[in-house]
């Protein structure tokens, strides 16, 4: 008790003396002590010893239940963050049921190895302008993020995480030839497309965005000079995604955005994906 409690600190929880603890000279409150213990002072007037037998049983059972719950929870979280092992292979489902979604966590911070390449996401758009179509050049969206981050002591999640994590999300749920490989595939694609549409739209290239195309440009960070510099392959590798049609719903404000009013919903039947 000592360090936390007792008379220390708020000491005082004065306690009424109506009720004297069985074993103690200490006067312990009835209701008073409760609060007393509730207080930082936590005077020792309560606790399991202040209870009569039936209540002690309840308290003891609760102690056991709480203890077991805490232990199980920590065990589950441990199995969740630990590498796949004998136990988690057998009981992976139970672990997931317990931990997901609210206790999900990942602490492989820069581990086992830090990211050693800059992955830039670039986009271009096909616009309709005055009856014709025009394709913009590649616009480096990640470079725009980086420019905003420069000199900013409090970078926003919008610049630091949005595009970066969306690309990871997309890459995790797609095969190397850019086909969705799981339930989240379609979602991740739509997400990425909407981010790109949002960013390109802000560029005001003029005209209506009909389609967009994305690619990633990956370039390794040059290894430090004192290690094996020179061996690093610093060429840029591109991963080019197919052209995606953009629907009105992909643009900021969704379907009710004023700018989309001109477009008939059925104009792009292929978009429905």
């Amino acid at each position: 008790m000592d360090s936390y409690g007792g008379e220390g600190r708020h000491a005082g929880a004065p306690v009424d003396a109506e009720h004297v603890e069985p074993g103690g000279p200490r006067p312990s409150a009835q209701s008073g002590d409760l609060r007393a213990t509730g207080g930082p002072g936590r005077s020792g007037g309560a606790g399991i010893q202040a209870l009569s037998l039936p209540y002690q049983v309840v308290a003891a059972v609760s102690l056991a239940v709480v203890g077991v719950l805490a232990a199980v929870h920590l065990g589950m979280v441990f199995l969740h963050v630990a590498p796949a092992n004998t136990l988690s292979k057998q009981h992976g489902e139970a672990v997931d049921d317990w931990v997901l979604p609210e206790f999900e966590q990942n602490w492989k911070l820069f581990a086992p190895n830090p990211l050693q390449q800059n992955i830039a996401v670039q986009a271009r758009a096909e616009l309709t302008v005055a009856g014709g179509r025009r394709t913009t050049g590649w616009i480096d969206l990640s470079a725009e993020d980086a420019a905003v981050i420069r000199g900013n002591p409090f970078p926003s999640h919008v610049t630091q995480n949005e595009l970066r994590r969306a690309w990871d999300f997309f890459a995790n749920w797609h095969t190397d030839d850019n086909r969705p490989n799981g339930v989240r595939g379609e979602l991740s694609e739509r997400y990425l497309r909407r981010i790109a549409a949002l960013r390109l739209d802000a560029h005001r290239e003029g005209g209506r965005i009909e389609r967009i195309q994305l690619r990633s440009a990956t370039r390794a960070v040059v290894a430090p000079v004192w290690s094996d510099a020179g061996k690093t392959d610093t060429r840029t590798y591109y991963r080019v995604l197919p052209w995606w049609p953009v629907t009105v719903a992909d643009l900021p404000g969704g379907a009710d955005a004023g700018r989309g009013a001109a477009r008939a919903a059925g104009e792009h039947p292929e978009e429905g994906r």
């Binding site: 708020h10 005082g12 929880a13 009424d16 003396a17 008073g32 609060r35 002072g41």
Partner: peptide, 30 residues
């Protein structure tokens, strides 16, 4: 007990003390 914590022993003072401790710790406790 004034600003200071009331010593346990002082408790019996009926009305005040009651609310004293109660509130006192009621806050936190509660």
């Amino acid at each position: 007990g004034g600003p200071g914590p009331t010593p346990d022993g002082a408790a019996p003072a009926p009305d005040t003390t009651d609310s004293g401790p109660d509130e006192a710790e009621a806050g936190p406790g509660g």
